[in-house]
Design a protein around this nucleic acid. Sequence first.
DNA 1: AGCCTGACAAGGT
DNA 2: AACCTTGCCAGGC
Length: 115
Amino acid sequence: MFPDLDTPAARAAAILKEIRAVSAGHVAGYGEIARRAGMPGRARLVAQVLRKYGAPDLPWYRILRSDGSIAFPAGSSSYREQGQRLRAEGVRVVKGRVVGLKATASVDEQIWGPA
DNA sequence: AGCCTGACAAGGT
DNA sequence: AACCTTGCCAGGC
């Protein structure tokens, strides 16, 4: 059978694939990644996968909350690194929130690109 | 099986 | 925009 989403590892793989699909200068929401991976409503699983399966080459910093804000506690080292990495790609970040990007898909989908 | 946790989301104030 | 409350659901114990 084709590798379905019936095992934690398979779900993680599908999620990681969608995260890698977000190109530089773009950002996406946890929920949108979940939907694209075939798991609508499982934003929290995306977060869990990022925490557990973090890899050096994974663009984890392009994943934000549905309102465009950074999910880490303000001031934490991860929070600072995420902001720094995003700005390095030309994304404007003000007080922990991405601004100035426009929706690439429909208004309801949390994926944004350069304005 | 049950309970708690969490890099979340949506809706209301 | 900022908060708070509810709903959510896989994972880990």
